[in-house]
């Protein structure tokens, strides 16, 4: 289903509940009655076109939003990516870690299994944290600065010119693969090799959470690789020519 601005947001959610975290990432709170997507976007000062591209891409894996997003301001995509980072680091990962923490095994393996899983997950969390922190302090600010200076025909600061000379967006070749592999490993470990825990409902919950997180992160990476990096690269090349 293609989501448009005239559809009621309630219907959108009822049709695909996976959009719930995406919508809350935009700051939208429930209890919105029969308002349409367009009305709610206006109420929350969200750019409707941008919102539609993001939810449609998440809703339908064959929907490719990249071309349209490339024509919108990068600051929109970047601010959305920042919100996803928050969601991963502060909401989802701690939640999964708590679930892992509450697993119980019978007998002497309890401590071993718990510790080994926890250690693995902590390590993964740390990697995600470092990865997103690097993007937030290095990549995104540079990308935004590129866009700002590209649109600005006035005077350019010396410090930016210096950056333009020394930096290259290409240097930020990504390490998403490693993060992805860790999630895949964790799925295989739990599904195939971990001795079943006593509280199997929690095991099920953990697995479902991992699958959801994986899908969310894949979409996230695609936004970076197919929108932010190529657009920034293009702007960078032109700015390097200009100055």
């Amino acid at each position: 289903m293609l989501i448009t601005k005239d559809i009621k947001l309630a219907d959108v959610i009822l049709q695909n509940y996976h959009l719930i975290p995406i919508i809350s990432r935009f700051g939208i709170k429930f209890g919105f009655g029969d308002k349409s997507v367009g009305q709610i976007c206006t109420q929350y000062h969200i750019k409707t076109n941008f919102f539609l591209e993001i939810v449609n891409a998440f809703n339908d894996k064959d929907y490719k939003p990249y071309e349209k997003l490339k024509n919108m301001s990068l600051s929109l995509t970047v601010s959305y990516l920042l919100k996803s980072h928050y969601y991963y680091n502060k909401v989802k990962l701690p939640f999964i870690e708590n679930l892992i923490d509450s697993l119980e095994w019978e007998g002497e393996d309890n401590l071993k299994n718990k510790n080994v899983l926890k250690k693995f997950f902590r390590q993964y969390r740390k990697e995600v944290n470092e990865h997103t922190a690097n993007e937030e302090t290095e990549i995104y600010p540079y990308v935004l600065e590129l866009e700002q200076n590209y649109n600005n025909t006035g005077k350019v600061s010396v410090s930016f010119l210096e950056k333009l000379k020394t930096k290259s967006i290409k240097d930020y070749a990504d390490t998403h693969d490693e993060l992805n592999s860790s999630l895949l490993d964790l799925k295989n470990i739990i599904i195939k090799y971990l001795y079943p825990a006593e509280n199997k409902d929690i095991t099920v919950q953990i697995l479902i959470e991992i699958f959801k997180l994986e899908k969310d992160m894949t979409d996230h990476t695609e936004l970076e690789e197919k929108v932010v990096i190529p657009v920034a690269e293009k702007i960078e090349t032109e700015l390097k020519k200009r100055y």
């Binding site: 080994v116 993964y124 592999s181 895949l184 490993d185 295989n188 470990i189 090799y193």
Partner: peptide
């Protein structure tokens, strides 16, 4: 189906 060093470590311990 396990690729990372940390994943293989978990396997080895389990």
């Amino acid at each position: 189906g396990i690729k990372t060093v940390s994943g293989l470590t978990v396997y080895a311990i389990l």
